[in-house]
Design a protein around this nucleic acid. Structure first.
Length: 278
DNA sequence: ATCACGACCTGGAGGC
DNA sequence: TGCCTCCAGGTCGTGA
């Protein structure tokens, strides 16, 4: 579920629900490991957050950063099925609730993740990039923008397919499998094209499409295929407006050719074989 | 170094 | 109803 637009939708909803200003009174965890079988660092989270006030929520690519009035921020990645929810304390824990920040206003901030592909950790504020997960992230296309020429420079010499290339978080932070298909359709680039074969114009078209696709999705509150909801439990509506993802067998919105599905490195790609020729 | 692939984990959908 | 297979928003480790 969670690519950049979904994570940004959660971030905005957390702000809207006044997470900022709340004080953490206790941190509780399920004891189950998350991504890569890594244990949730319960003691470190408690030390970072207990008794402290939340001062803001920011985002880097698909990572959320809950800032606290101490030296550490809490970093959250939603994986495939993670949700970060604000709920009243009296509500029973949903299945697969793995980390709970109890707040002084009677609410909880809860991380729920059935598949446990997500992660929760701490980072030093001001030195976020020193965390291994953030160290190599490319520019955030919304928060920072993609510099002119960046994609073309990074693509030079690459024999990987262009779709793989834009999914690489070291190139650009935030594009995932849904929006990769959307971006290539909008830019009229074939997903079969090798990244290194992109011309400067093609690369620029990809950068423009990334910006447009992600902003549009954010405006719609993100895409909910199945699991994604914001901090209040509300799904996003962008699924209604997808241009090509999941539309195999139906006519291309531009040229009416039947949309095809192919699998690249184990992941579904949707594209129009006629108008994605670049 | 780069790339393709399988693994990680759970649950929902669809076929029989 | 139940069992089976396939599929899913992401990343990481392996081996060629």
């Amino acid at each position: 579920m969670p690519e950049l637009p979904e994570v940004e939708s959660v971030r905005r909803d957390l702000v809207r629900r006044r997470l900022k200003g709340a004080r953490v009174v206790r941190v509780r965890t399920s004891g189950k490991p998350l991504r890569m079988n890594t244990p949730v660092p319960t003691a470190v989270l408690g030390k970072a957050a207990r008794g402290r006030r939340i001062t803001g929520v920011s985002r880097l690519g698909k990572y959320l950063l809950v800032e606290i009035d101490g030296p550490l921020s809490v970093m959250v990645h939603l994986g495939m099925t993670g949700n970060l929810l604000i709920v009243p304390r009296h509500r029973p824990w949903a299945p697969h609730t793995h980390v709970v920040f109890e707040l002084d206003d009677g609410r909880d901030l809860r991380f729920v993740d059935p598949r446990r592909f997500g992660m929760v950790d701490t980072v030093t504020r001001g030195r976020e990039r020193e965390h291994a997960a953030l160290a190599e992230l490319g520019p955030d296309p919304i928060a920072e923008g993609i510099p002119d020429g960046h994609l073309w420079e990074r693509a030079r010499g690459k024999s990987a397919k262009v779709k793989t290339f834009i999914l690489d978080q070291r190139v650009v932070a935030g594009v995932g499998n849904i929006y990769a298909s959307e971006v290539l359709w909008l830019a009229r680039i074939s997903p079969r094209r090798k990244a290194g074969k992109l011309g400067a114009e093609d690369a620029r078209a990809v950068a423009v499409a990334i910006d447009e696709v992600l902003r549009f999705a954010i405006d719609n509150g993100g895409t909910t295929l199945r699991d994604f909801v914001d901090a209040g439990g509300e799904p996003g509506s962008n699924g209604e407006f997808l241009l090509v993802y999941g539309r195999d067998g139906t006519p291309c919105l531009r040229c009416r050719t039947t949309i095809r599905r192919q699998v690249d490195q184990g992941r579904a790609t949707y594209f129009c074989p006629t108008c994605q020729k670049r």
